[in-house]
Nucleic acid binder design. Structure first.
Lengths: 335, 335
DNA sequence: TTGTAAGCGTTATCAC
DNA sequence: GTGATAACGCTTACAA
């Protein structure tokens, strides 16, 4: 409950000097500094955020924007891990992350834009977008126009946006390399054949190794029917690539279903076919067999993003931020 | 960017009257009210939270405390769903929920207590504890002593704590009833034989149905080894209760492992043995077969808790809050 | 029913 | 190096 005034009284200094000492801004004699430091500890002084914000008209709040499809959509534990990381870093700087969920299609929604303007109104010190999509880009631009530093967690570096991004290409590349090292040569990439860094990583690895590219295109389905989708995928893989001995799946969800499918078709994982998932979701741990999978370091991602954002906030850093983060192979039993 | 002063200037009223009109507190003539309302819209006025907090020395922040074992522990999607619900409700009242993770054993930690005192220092309008454990109870008491309304999401009503609680007893009771309806008579409860509402629910249902109680005690293990634990559990169940035709498992994790175990022992789920899990975790959807499970309505829980807390905050409600929430059986394929 | 004035705890501007 | 003093935008006595 101690305020600057209390510290001033205790030390015999003026509030002003105390304030400067605490913030290490401006001239303070060594003696005064020591007095203040001691009093701060003794009285357990904590600055009043509201007063700070009011006076300096900036807040100590970092808005974390998570754009999700639907109120009913499953909560994303990967997003949560990022938030953990963000929080971990920010608390060291006494900033307060504040989570904002915006229900909105990743495409665009006027409603979300309005919600966002409310968020801007509270003048957050900075904004973190947990994912990259059209809506997030749009809001990023709005934030920038409003003069509020923002950063994006994404999957590719960009010259237009400050971002910390995950190198999915490298992740899948390394996954393929691992399968090669294990002696697999007929490696299938199972997923949507869209232009995606995962796909690129697979292709690059296959080309580098001089083996042939084997894409099996799987249409993505809803999560509730993933086991069916997976089974169908297993059938498709075996019919299109009968001699397959390794599979890189587009997601853990898909991989988990494929594993079930292989099993029911009499193929053993990993003995007959090694299988690698993607994302290291909780599911990967409980699949049968538990999935070897390509993982983002979500918490680390959060930490790095918070750190980068704060550099923007504090140092008015104008250099484009582009931080690349590596994916790691988590070894379990499917490969 | 408009302030009270701007509205006052525009309407020709005093700041004071404007303030009262906006907050609907105290006497304001109909005419003045209309003037203010119009100006608010026209100037797009938003109150400055920092100023409000500073002056009234209370914040509009609801602290949401999630006590987790370890920084490395998996992020709990059930907790996240609760937060969604909380947020959903609070935004209607322009309160701002603020998530605080406290890494701490659920038992006790001096460090967490210190962290908590920092949170208290920011004078949140209210506090929500997402889970019930010794640490949360301790902090609840500290909050109460500090005069800050708090509420607990828990598993049992209590005369000492305001809480919104999930009726696990009823959940399991209904689960057993469902198995009975499906013609199962030899129903095993697989879990830790601790005094727990799940256990009570099972026992009550079994007694009511006049069938015998079949408890198979499973030691809980880490999540990474759950499939092994589950297999062992399946073996144990079949050896202790060879004629088992239904199983209520302590958790989805356990149930998922047991399903694998049964399958490898040649038992079909649900044909030979119906299996019901608990908690409706993501995993339940992806198990083989997908698990019928007893679910908490987490989002609803969050909404109700936020609502109850706000009643405490706004109305200085002193009546003990005890809101019981029912669990629902989510039907999938394992039973 | 409305207006005046004080003050919440801090930071910024200046004069000393 | 330091200390008055004003101001941030709002709420709350109290006076009118």
């Amino acid at each position: 409950m101690a305020s600057l005034k209390d510290i001033a009284a205790k030390t015999g200094l003026s509030m002003n000097t105390v304030s400067r000492a605490i913030r290490h801004s401006g001239y303070v004699s060594e003696k005064a500094q020591k007095l203040v430091d001691a009093a701060v500890v003794e009285l357990n002084y904590q600055p009043n955020r509201a007063a700070q914000s009011l006076r300096s008209s900036r807040s100590y709040e970092i808005a974390v924007i998570n754009i999700v499809n639907e109120p009913s959509s499953a909560c994303d534990s990967m997003a949560m891990d990022k938030v953990f990381g963000i929080k971990e870093y920010l608390t060291t700087d006494s900033y307060e992350p504040n989570m904002h969920y915006m229900y909105s299609s990743p495409e665009y929604s006027a409603e979300s834009e309005k919600l966002f303007s409310n968020i801007l109104w509270q003048k957050p010190a900075g904004i973190i977008f947990l994912s990259e999509n059209a809506m997030a880009m749009k809001l990023y631009n709005i934030a920038e126009k409003a003069g509020i530093p923002a950063i994006l967690i994404s999957y590719a570096g960009s010259l237009e946006y400050d971002s910390v991004y995950v190198d999915r290409r490298q992740g899948v590349y390394d996954g393929v390399k691992y399968l090669l090292k294990k002696g697999r040569r007929n490696i299938v990439f199972a997923g949507q054949k869209i232009s995606d860094q995962r796909f690129e990583g697979y292709n690059a690895a296959v080309v580098d190794a001089g083996i042939s590219s084997r894409i099996v295109s799987i249409k993505s389905g809803g999560l509730e029917e993933i086991s069916k989708t997976g089974r169908d995928a297993a059938v498709k893989i075996l019919s299109e690539q009968p001699d397959v001995d390794g599979v890189i799946a587009y997601s853990d969800y898909l991989a988990s279903g494929i594993a079930l499918g292989f099993k029911s078709l009499g193929k053993r994982v990993p003995e007959d076919i090694a299988l690698i998932g993607f994302d290291n979701r909780e599911l990967a741990m409980f699949s049968s067999p538990p999935l070897t999978t390509i993982a983002q370091p979500n918490r680390e991602l959060g930490r790095l993003t918070a750190k980068a954002l704060l550099s923007k906030v504090l140092l008015k850093n104008t250099k484009k931020i582009q931080i690349k983060v590596k994916m790691e192979l988590v070894l379990r039993q499917s490969a």
